[in-house]
């Protein structure tokens, strides 16, 4: 297992809560895959691979199907989420006001790309469609806070406020 591309993501996680979810939802079959994933994510905060493998064993839903769904829907995360979520708007208004530059600056500041989480689990980075404050474009959100007319040089200051 040393060459595992998922590295320590496959590390053991307590399966008890997963079994509790299964019991609550029983009987679970292919038709329940999405609600099952939602409940698991609500329970663990993300979808731990070892939990999905266990779910597959227990329900007979192929692990490949669960994994396919988990990567297809943006709502699901296969890695433990950060304590804070940084969202960069990629809507049209933000786009024309230079969101690309903002994005690059934040990627660099955090050292990760959208869809990833920093190693210290402080931040997860996502992109988001228009958040409805186009007059503030380009817009970045951290958790529920909005930052408008963001200056690429100031992104460090923005994230510094979150521990």
């Amino acid at each position: 297992m040393d060459a595992h591309p998922m590295g320590d993501a496959m590390a053991a996680v307590d399966l008890g809560p997963a079994h509790a979810v299964l019991e609550r939802m029983a009987p679970v079959d292919h038709g329940h895959a999405i609600p099952l994933l939602q409940n698991i994510q609500d329970t663990y905060g993300y979808l731990p691979p070892s939990v999905l493998l266990e779910l597959s064993d227990e329900t007979g839903i192929p692990a490949a199907h669960l994994f396919g769904l988990a990567t297809f829907y943006a709502q699901f995360h296969l890695e433990e989420h950060g304590r804070h979520t940084v969202r960069v708007c990629r809507g049209t208004a933000c786009h024309v006001r230079g969101r690309q530059v903002i994005q690059e600056a934040i990627d660099e500041e955090l050292g990760i790309e959208p869809g990833e989480t920093t190693e210290d689990r402080r931040f997860s980075l996502e992109t988001v469609a228009c958040v409805g404050t186009c007059f503030l474009a380009p817009v970045v959100m951290v958790d529920n806070d909005y930052f408008g007319k963001v200056d690429p040089k100031k992104v460090g200051d923005i994230v510094a406020g979150y521990e």
């Binding site: 060459a3 591309p5 998922m6 691979p49 999905l52 493998l53 597959s56 692990a63 994994f67 990567t71």
Partner: peptide
């Protein structure tokens, strides 16, 4: 399965297991 990767899809195994 197919997994989504950024904007593209790719054939994969669950969690890219060998």
């Amino acid at each position: 399965t197919f997994k989504m990767r950024a904007s593209s899809v790719e054939v994969a195994t669950p969690f890219d297991m060998p």
